[in-house]
Amino acid sequence: MDNKPVILIVEDEEGIANFISAVLKANEYKIIKTDKGKEAIAMTASYSPDLVLLDLGLPDMDGVDVLKTIRAWSAIPIIVVSARGHEREKVEALDLGADDYITKPFGTSELLARIRTGLRHSQKNSDVNSAEIKKITVGELEIDYDKRLVSISGEPVHLTPIEYKIIVLLSRHIGKVLTHDFIIKEVWGPYTNEIQALRVNMANIRRKLEKNPAAPRYIVTHVGVGYRMVEELD
């Protein structure tokens, strides 16, 4: 028996499914494939794969419904595959519990990186309670939760309480895209629409953390979707 992670590919385009499975096999993953939403749900239940790669455009049912059904009973990492220009679809999928998304057309390196992040997350979640993590480090950025301190190259950064809240939120979900709505709800509470405030705060955080705010390294923008704190610098 080998310990290769099992990846379920739900994709109705044969060409794309072929290329993804080729790449993943070459990178030491075990593959199961389907092109139907109902089968995907059944296979998730019976094989319990380590990660699901879910295309939102399926012939038999809406990919979003597949996502909802699986999320109802499983916390398995799900990466949604969607076309560019469908920002609303992505936001909906993320808000419904998708862990990440990848935009068609994508390159192999990008795909592998996302899968790695997704798998790591699920392990982390099962191994240790995320609240027990005391410190997080990305490149020169260091966040110490106990001391409530954010520093860059050892220099402490002065943040307002809201800015700190946002950074902590992003770092707790490091590697994952957080939608605008999600961040707003977590930071300002429900029933508010502070999208402008969020943008302003993000701009300030960027100016405090990044060398060039127009070429951010730690917190990247996904236009029309949300923000993500990167796990590893390029």
Binding site: R199, M202, A203, A214, A215, V220, T221, H222, V223
Partner: peptide, 25 residues
């Protein structure tokens, strides 16, 4: 929209295709 966010995303996308050119923002 924040202009810098839009520019940043555009630059990061184009950078994937043309890594030989330097883009200063």
């Amino acid at each position: 929209e924040a202009a810098e966010e839009i520019i940043a995303e555009a630059v990061s996308r184009i950078h994937k295709w043309f890594s030989n050119w330097k883009i200063s923002v």
